[in-house]
């Protein structure tokens, strides 16, 4: 693209991020590890999602909801991650990869189950390929309900972890 056109577009568009909503109230019953304050790297694990949640995660990390402003960032390796964002029902083929991914994430780590499928298998409960919800296999620290959850809900869950 012509750099001048791009420059004009940048000047005309300005800020696309929406104003930040009030910070969520900290949950005193399940405290978040202090070490993760202010900086959280997220590794996304799809264990059998319909990709609805993925679109919403993409939106949460996109320019409009901009969860990066609170210190959360997507990373490419579980070794770099503090939070595993698990979406979808756990299918038989994904049980082992899920357990291995959790094992490969250094402590302190949190597992966030995103969407109704991760919580209770949702629409896919009882299907032949489904092994169960995420909490049957790994300890879940936070849950984001919704089918699919709104980006605001994902942003709020991650803000609980970063505390910003």
């Amino acid at each position: 693209m012509n750099p001048f056109r791009l420059l004009k577009l940048i000047a005309r568009t300005g800020r696309i991020a929406e104003p930040a909503p009030a910070a969520p109230v900290a949950d005193t019953e399940h405290p978040i590890p202090k070490a993760l304050r202010g900086s959280v790297q997220v590794r996304h694990v799809d264990t059998g999602s319909c990709n609805g949640c993925e679109i919403e995660i993409g939106a949460a990390f996109g320019g409009v909801y901009d969860v990066e402003r609170y210190g959360a960032r997507l990373v490419a390796s579980p070794r770099h991650a503090d939070v595993l964002a698990v979406t979808g029902v756990v299918t038989h083929n994904m049980v082992e990869p899920l357990l291995r991914t959790v094992e490969a994430t250094p402590r302190p780590r949190l597992v966030v189950a995103i969407g109704d499928c991760a919580h209770d298998c949702g629409l896919f409960a009882g299907a032949y390929g489904v092994a169960g919800p995420v909490s049957d296999f790994v300890d879940v620290d936070l849950e984001v309900p919704g089918c699919p959850p709104r980006p605001e809900a994902i942003v709020e869950a991650l803000r609980r972890v970063t505390g910003r």
């Binding site: 202010g38 900086s39 320019g63 990066e68 210190g71």
Partner: peptide, 28 residues
């Protein structure tokens, strides 16, 4: 970069927070 993309950005002090966090984690 974040500002030019229309984002708010995580603040200029974010790398300090990242390093502090990494030092507190177990080296797996």
């Amino acid at each position: 970069r974040a500002r030019l993309e229309g984002r708010i950005g995580s603040g200029v002090l974010q790398p300090y927070r990242d390093v502090r966090k990494l030092l507190a984690k177990e080296p797996l």
